[in-house]
């Protein structure tokens, strides 16, 4: 469980987040939704320690019960946190020219410090297989399409074998086919590998169709949370997005219509 407590963040004098006190779920997929500039990504990157909060703490439970209790994400040793929480931003541009396999192997760095053991090689193979990249493993990243590259980055954070996987807009710049494929893979990551996946999603309907929990953010505060059925409702979404929304239940999934 990731526990965000009293977190605030301001850029200059403009407050962008908080105070937020929020528990991000232990298992399954949690989606963070909200309008542009609401502080979704800021919340995610602070939880993933890519950004420091001005006040407040983020703690994660490291072990299964009886384990070493909780880690303060921002104060614990960076190398320890990296074995528990993995976080991926939406844009990743590298100056180094890497193959898919080299990139995914970097995910093992927290465990092996750069010297891959047999366990690490197996973990890399597993992550590659899981994201259907085994055939592409020798290709350079700049030879891949956007969707393939996105999967390669996700494979890297999967190879990290952390309990928590935080993804900032993994669907950005993917077409519907690749977006659906990515969500299906993330669903399997949550169900089959037992990881807790937290993502920032722009499209409410993707969040509704694939998440276990949805957290809605507006003006730097959590304004609604719960299961898709509880959050994806006319009144809640209109409040969050400040736009008229009609929600229909299609095939058992609440679906928001907001295009007109």
């Amino acid at each position: 469980m990731i526990t965000v407590e009293g977190v605030t963040k301001a850029y200059g004098t403009t407050p962008v987040l908080g105070p937020v006190t929020q528990v991000l779920a232990e298992r399954g997929i949690t989606s963070i939704i909200g309008p542009n500039g609401a502080g979704k990504s800021t919340l995610l990157t602070i939880a993933g320690r890519l950004a420091e909060p001005d006040t407040g703490t983020v703690r994660v439970r490291a072990g299964d019960g009886g384990g070493p209790g909780e880690l303060d994400v921002h104060r614990a040793r960076s190398s320890e946190v990296a074995k528990v929480v993995a976080v991926l931003r939406q844009e990743n541009h590298f100056t180094a020219r890497l193959t898919v396999r080299e990139l995914v192997s970097f995910g093992r760095f927290p465990h092996c410090g750069g010297r891959l053991t047999a366990t690490d090689v197996a973990a890399v193979d597993e992550a590659l297989g899981f994201l259907e990249l085994t055939d592409l493993q020798g290709r350079f990243l700049d030879e891949l399409s956007g969707g393939q590259r996105q999967r390669a980055h996700v494979a890297m954070v999967l190879a990290q074998q952390t309990r928590y996987v935080l993804l900032d807009e993994p669907l950005s710049s993917l077409d519907i086919r690749h977006a659906v494929r990515m969500m299906r893979l993330l669903r399997r990551v949550a169900d089959e590998l037992g990881r807790a996946v937290v993502l920032v999603v722009h499209d409410v309907n993707f969040a509704a169709a694939w998440s276990d929990r949805i957290v809605a953010v507006r003006d730097g505060r959590v304004v609604a949370q719960g299961t898709p059925a509880e959050v994806v409702r006319d009144d809640v979404l209109e409040e969050v997005f400040d736009t008229p929304v009609r929600v229909h239940v299609l095939d058992g999934v609440p679906t928001a219509v907001y295009h007109r």
């Binding site: 040793r77 960076s78 320890e80 990743n92 760095f109 954070v157």
Partner: peptide
């Protein structure tokens, strides 16, 4: 620190994610 330098070249965010100070 050659292995850590490999990671640093991936940029701050990736390096932090992979546990490099």
């Amino acid at each position: 620190r050659h292995a850590r330098l490999d990671v640093l070249e991936l940029g701050r965010d990736t390096a932090v994610n992979l546990g490099v100070d």
